[in-house]
């Protein structure tokens, strides 16, 4: 398969439902913690090195063929917020639906049977990368990029931020994306020898806390 499959999978227009989520940015905007491009960058950088790294590692491990049920339990343990676990499973289910139509695969079929309500999105993403003929590093890049592209796009809508500024934020984060994707790939390759705890578990306390609050807002622009 071709590397271009990565572009299809990472494209924001791939119909996997990600556009409805701000990755915690909506709550941060409301709290006055994101007010422009500089604070958006700081937000994205923090998200990248915490949930971004964790997601990228899970995706890379799934792409390498680690047991998805074990990975899903590891994702649960790394996602204390019940609101964020629900979001991760919903996004996993939506990605599964789009991916099975795009890259039909027996592994995706069996994961869908195992988790009818959806597995954690990064685990699905890793298996989708496998189905698309991509490697662990590709899966890690995809997850790491999603961890920052979602908030950046959302803040364009939430703050009427100039889209050029949002893209510049993502471009400035590119070297750190490389770093995170590398770390994720290394951690995933250690799973067969060191077990599932080789995967990073870095958390972002404010994302966990504000997700529970955001889930109760009666009116909001984004689902999370």
């Amino acid at each position: 398969m071709s590397r271009a499959a990565l572009l299809v999978l990472a494209d924001g227009r791939f119909p996997a439902g990600g556009h409805a989520h701000s990755g915690g940015a909506e709550a941060a905007v409301r709290a006055g913690r994101i007010t422009g491009a500089a604070s958006l960058e700081d937000f994205c950088r923090g998200r990248l090195h915490t949930t971004g790294l964790v997601s990228a590692s899970l995706a890379a491990a799934a792409a390498l063929g680690a047991d998805p049920v074990t990975l899903d339990a590891a994702a649960d343990a790394r996602t204390p917020s019940s609101a964020l676990r629900a979001v991760a499973r919903r996004l996993g289910r939506q990605l599964m639906r789009a991916a099975r139509a795009t890259w039909p695969s027996g592994e995706l079929d069996s994961l869908a049977r195992e988790f009818p309500k959806g597995a954690h999105q990064p685990v699905v993403l890793g298996l989708v990368a496998r189905a698309a003929g991509l490697g662990a590093q590709d899966a890690a890049y995809c997850a790491a990029y999603e961890s920052v592209s979602g908030p950046a796009t959302a803040v364009v809508r939430l703050l009427s931020l100039d889209p050029f500024d949002a893209s510049a934020v993502l471009a400035r984060l590119a070297p750190e994306l490389d770093l995170v994707a590398d770390r994720a790939g290394e951690a995933a390759r250690r799973v067969p020898s060191d077990g599932i705890e080789a995967l990073p578990a870095v958390s972002a306390p404010l994302l966990e806390i504000t997700a529970e609050d955001h889930a109760t807002w009666p009116v909001r622009l984004f689902a999370s």
């Binding site: 923090g46 090195h49 915490t50 790294l53 343990a77 790394r78 958390s203 404010l206 994302l207």
Partner: peptide, 20 residues
């Protein structure tokens, strides 16, 4: 439950930012 926090000088970027 599996959670790690990393803070202070030399910690990965954004640890004191609006997400963390």
């Amino acid at each position: 439950l599996d959670q790690e926090t990393a803070c202070g000088p030399g910690a990965p970027g954004g640890w004191d930012g609006p997400a963390v």
